[in-house]
Design a protein around this nucleic acid. Structure first.
Length: 293
DNA sequence: AGGCAGGTGGCCA
DNA sequence: TGGCCACCTGCC
């Protein structure tokens, strides 16, 4: 039996969003669960127990579709996409007036957003991300879902919960191609099992405290903690420093010789309370430049 | 065919 | 603290 889908429901109208920006937001390294269906021009993905399709029309209207009967996922989707957030105003508050390179990046990706993904699965996806490129991370996440996650509709699974992960063995996780990440995921699953409600607590904490608690989990260092807090907990001040951002800050901000930790500090101070939002523009711009070469 | 990829943790000075 | 290296796997 196959899934039937609802009509395309209007999600929001925006003059800023474009197909390229939707792609960059859903599939540019924040989330790893979206795939583009070129034939019918829509994105399909899951977050939590929601299965969703999104498309953008020429009139710049975002429309969405759900498996019949699951139409109320639209509320969760609005939250996921930050539909209620005034991104334009946050963007304007970034220090682009005194930072020429930031201004260039903002101009190139105006309309880009930060997702608000379910925190627990954001932690999982970024535990998979260590020294992997986006396509590999997506494969790992897909395998985790297929093998361990609940089935949302026939053939499509949610990412596993931490309870489901804890029920798996490290050997079983390794068999999914996770490599050394399997041990970290297994250990973190155990730590979470020992402290029920831990992730919910962390999500509700202020940035610095939340980060300190995340760093105590196996396999989570500065970068992964910041990614989880930025893309999964709405903490826009989190400033993940990965190899791309190191390169940007060294070459375009003349910060050669700075350690990743010092660069993170610089980022939070220089870009301010929405540093993570700024980071995403620097990241997208740098990645796009690299692909063109 | 070997190096490297959106890191982390452990070990050493 | 700061630098180095092992760690899985797959793709260029």
């Amino acid at each position: 039996m196959s899934v039937t889908w609802s009509d395309w429901l209007p999600l929001e109208h925006t003059s800023q969003f474009t197909p390229a920006l939707l792609a960059e937001t859903l599939d540019g390294g924040q989330a790893f669960r979206w795939s583009f269906h070129a034939d019918d021009d829509f994105w399909q993905g899951t977050f939590g127990k929601h299965l969703v399709r999104i498309r953008i029309e020429k009139s710049m209207t975002l429309r969405c579709s759900f498996p019949n009967g699951a139409e109320n996922s639209i509320n969760a989707l609005r939250s996921y996409l930050g539909s209620e957030t005034n991104w334009e105003s946050i963007l304007d508050s970034l220090p682009w007036r005194s930072d020429e390179h930031l201004a260039t990046c903002l101009a190139g990706f105006r309309g880009l957003r930060i997702l608000k993904q379910p925190f627990a699965e954001t932690v999982l996806c970024f535990l998979c991300s260590a020294t992997k490129q986006i396509p590999q991370i997506k494969i790992m996440c897909a395998r985790l879902a297929a093998e361990l996650g609940d089935e949302i509709v026939p053939g499509i699974h949610a990412l596993p919960t931490w309870e489901q992960l804890n029920a798996a063995s490290e050997v079983q996780l390794r068999a999914l191609g996770l490599g050394f990440r399997a041990k970290n995921i297994k250990r973190t699953a155990e730590q979470i099992a020992e402290a029920p409600g831990l992730l919910d607590t962390i999500e509700g904490l202020p940035y610095a405290e939340a980060k300190a608690k995340l760093l105590a989990l196996a396999g989570i260092g500065e970068k992964i903690a910041d990614c989880a807090l930025l893309f999964g907990a709405g903490k826009l001040e989190a400033f993940p420093v990965d190899t791309w951002i190191i390169k940007v800050l060294q070459t375009r901000y003349q910060l050669h010789g700075w350690t990743p930790s010092q660069l993170a500090q610089f980022g939070r101070v220089h870009f301010g309370r929405y540093a993570g939002f700024a980071q995403q523009f620097l990241f997208s711009y740098e990645r796009l430049s690299a692909r063109k070469r």
